[in-house]
Nucleic acid binder design. Sequence first.
DNA 1: AGCACGCCGACT
DNA 2: GTCGGCGTGCTC
Length: 804
Amino acid sequence: MITVAEVIVDVAAYPVDRPFDYLVPTEMTNIIECGCRVKVPFGPRNVLGFVVALKNDTEVPLEKIKPVTQILDIEPVLTREMLQLAKWLKHETICYEIDALQVMLPSALRAKYEKFVTLQTNIENLPDSLKEWFQKSERVNLKQFEKNNLLPDIKRALNAKMVTLENVVGQKGKVKEVRKVQICPEREKLNEIVNNISNRAKKQKLLVEWMANHVGEIVDPDIIYQELNTSSQVLQAVIELGAASFIQQEVYRDPFTKEVKKTDFLNLTEEQSTALHKITDAMNRKQSETFLLHGITGSGKTEVYLQAIAKCLEEGKEAIVLVPEISLTPQMTERFRSRFGELVAVMHSGLSVGEKYDEWRKVHQGKVKVVVGARSAIFVPFENVGIIILDEEHESSYKQEDSPRYHARDVAIWRSKYHTCPVILGSATPSLESFARSKKNVYTLLTLKERALKQSLPTVQVVDMREELKKGNRSMFSQQLLESIRVRLEKKEQIVLFLNRRGYSAFVLCRDCGTVLQCENCDISLTYHRSNEKCKCHYCGYEIHVPKTCPQCQSDHIRFFGTGTQKVEEEIAKFFPEARVLRMDVDTTKTKGSHEQLLQAFGDGEADILLGTQMIAKGLDFPNITLVGVLSADTSLHLPDFRAAEKTFQLLTQVSGRAGRHRKPGEVVIQTYTPEHYAIELAKTQEYEPFYEREMHMRHQAGYPPYYYLALIQVSHEDVMMAAEYAGKAADWLRSKLSFQISIIGPTTAGISRLQNRYRYQCLIKYKIEPNLIPTLLQLIKLYRSDWIKKGIILTVDLDPTMI
DNA sequence: AGCACGCCGACT
DNA sequence: GTCGGCGTGCTC
């Protein structure tokens, strides 16, 4: 009987986006499993692939089928669940199956392809230019030749058969190993060695005697050096005598810097326990129910999560907690680690590739039961999930912006159905989609209306900055805000000032001609980085030194403009020279851990005012903060995005929630040029439902979600005319195929009209129910793949886009 | 995608 | 004659 493996190969392209059959050699049949990574020959090269099925026959003619070269995992890296989930993702987001599989694994497990040139002749026969490279070894990485512009020479040598080219498949990350000392497990042998050591070798004798007291133990060599005040030479000598040996031991890289104290459950309010009961009830009934936990800021949502997780652990099941990347601060993760200790793994982008790999391995090996992480943590390979939590469910960072363009919320619900467990979506300001679903009873609504410590919500005042201007106040602070700051400074209470700068970052501008430094490849201004005095494009990586003079007019009045926090800081100093200000922005939080240090300092009362952008809107919880000032509420309101009002309301509610969370009452001052806008008016009362009703009405009128679904088609090409022409073709084609009830807007230029030297056009499709849409889009892709791709067109489809 | 194969023009 | 340009087609 033969064994055949169906393999998804690591080649992202439509024609090969299907399983390929490979013969499993007899010696591998006992080891191979679904979900293993394998090395396979594919056409003329070797690639990595994932085994998605095993069977005993094949349709493929025997002369075509090739054997698996190697199995890379003894234990499968993907569970059956994930193989199914990948198929669903492929269909749901229109992506390649390989991309769906790869996104579930830490990048350390991705393939690394290298090419090696091997010498096949006497080195003397080589051309002079190549000789030196093969002095040390007959096998040299092709990269070396690439770097030194020797590719033509290599090509010639290849044709003359003097060298051969070899593809090597490896993996990016490694398991970290450290060298330890394994002490001999037999006491008698150690005693015998001690007796044989010459009396002149005092240190060796001492060391072996010490070892006799630690028979069979595995110790860190550094401990030996310190404890016995000895050196590696002595240890080496003793090892040669046979008293111990060096071994390699697998270790986890530890991303946690400090230990945390254990904490206990807090008492729940009545609302909290009602919510908790409904959740644990669903767990008991083994039901995949989605809860929307709508709790105002400070209502203690996290405590509900923690106790639900505790219940889940009691049942012997695992828990997944997703948190937006920016609020995944040490304070946040500590709350989980202090409750569940070593059972928690943390996954976020701040970890190195190796650290992420190790956190993933802890899950894979069953060492942890709780994962706290950003978006991609939704794919952790737990096999018995008891609860999934998405905190701040309205956050747009839960949607991945490149392939596979999945939304963590959708994946969470899919997994909850697979494991028949509940999902909790938590937020003080739910997304309209989720709240609408709870109104239709698709999700179960749980409400927390009171703050956990019964504090009242802060009072909110909205200041019309136009009036201030009329009064002749040209500064960025209103009289009202200045007065409030003065009062707090006197009372020795703390202040948070929030600069709404969504979508802005530091840039470089010429004050004479107004030129802003732009990327050469993209239609976007470069971001200034103070640390290395460079300007970088965040989209393509293009980087230049800050020029001394303006490239346009040669003026030397070229200056960097920050997020504005610096300017605010200067102005505060003018009004309140005695105030101690902490500034938190990209500049002051660049190094690892600086974010944490700044917050710690503020919490310890080392400053009176914390000034910052987005990053201070979340999770900040200090008892002495009694005033929150929003310097410009409008900035996020005028972004060209149908969610601008929703995002502004969410942001204002979030920052307002920072004030008066403990005993002292809080005050919020919001400065704006459009106080009449409903997002700002309703943020003042901090009532979600009136905002929801109002915004739903707007969405209904304009034909946006949740009333309509969206799909975004993007067409790009190096040439503007080509991009525009084919975007037009795509739009026309779709209009001819889809029913007239569907509106297709565009093509228009994309938000960033040129990216990596490609011009981009897009069409927006708005639809209610259209069973034909996905098949039609797939047809469009088919059309594109056969014909357009040759002309250099790239077409992407984003179903349910979050940004337009 | 990425590679070989194949056909065609321009060079040591 | 052969080197290298890129259009075509295939990958178990």
